[in-house]
Amino acid sequence: MGPSAASAHRGIAAGHAAAPRLQGTTADARWLEWLFIGVSWAFLALVLLVPLGAVFCEALREGLRAYFDAFDDPYAWSAIRLTLFTAAIAVPANVVFGLAASWAIAKFEFRGKTVLITLIDLPFAVAPVVSGLIYVLLFGMTGWFGPWLASHDIQIIFAAPGVVLATIFVTFPLVARELIPLMQEQGTDEEEAAASLGAGGWQTFRRVTLPNIKWALMYGVILCNARAMGEFGAVSVVSGHLRGKTHTMPLHVESLYNEYNFVAAFAVASLLAMLAVATLAVKTAVQWRMQRELQDSAEP
């Protein structure tokens, strides 16, 4: 299993393997190296670190008390709950979908496979606002299913189900996109071997396939979770902006900002930022584990 696992993880781990120094390093190359490093850092500082710092500065502008007051608000808590609730549905749904789709694409040949691969990328290609409008057109009162839903007293858009649906739509490529290249590269040899040794389908999946893809799966889950909690555009269209009911955290931030409540807006934004940083930390941990496992398995 050693070498195959090593090659399997190459796609993701490559970025972290020590880059081999250029042959025949000259002063020129060293100079270039520093230039590129400098440019990268300057760019990151400008577009990432400074705005992130600004969020925390603004949030703490009037002291810790004002900062925590922002969370002493039922609307803030309902936004936090809805955000976590949405992620708690969207992420598992995408794990199931991502596993099924990548399994089918990587391990079987069937008609329409390229179409399926293209369709999975669709949410990346369309603007989030359009993703939201799709659901309005389907489930809105003037949409296809709107009148039927209304006559059965079912509310989808402008309620929590709409928020969840829109979030699932914009996040669903994330898990599948991580798994497909990896599973394609792995091929079907190990599964075939397992089957020839008498393993059943579920057993093969659990004992052979899953261990091979678990880190990529974890990585997809993390990305998916980050996007699910942070999505603004699509959710904004289907939410109807009912404060305390259909406001997720990003929508709540916008609403507070529009109410001249800048400290509270940045405080809630800082909570979102901290969730992002926590996600990043978990991601780094996952990568670190992944690399260590690679090294372990590379040794005899």
Partner: peptide
């Protein structure tokens, strides 16, 4: 667990 512990009661309108 962290995610599901805090949702459904309020999420559904």
């Amino acid at each position: 667990a962290a995610l599901s512990g805090c949702g459904p009661a309020d999420g559904a309108a």
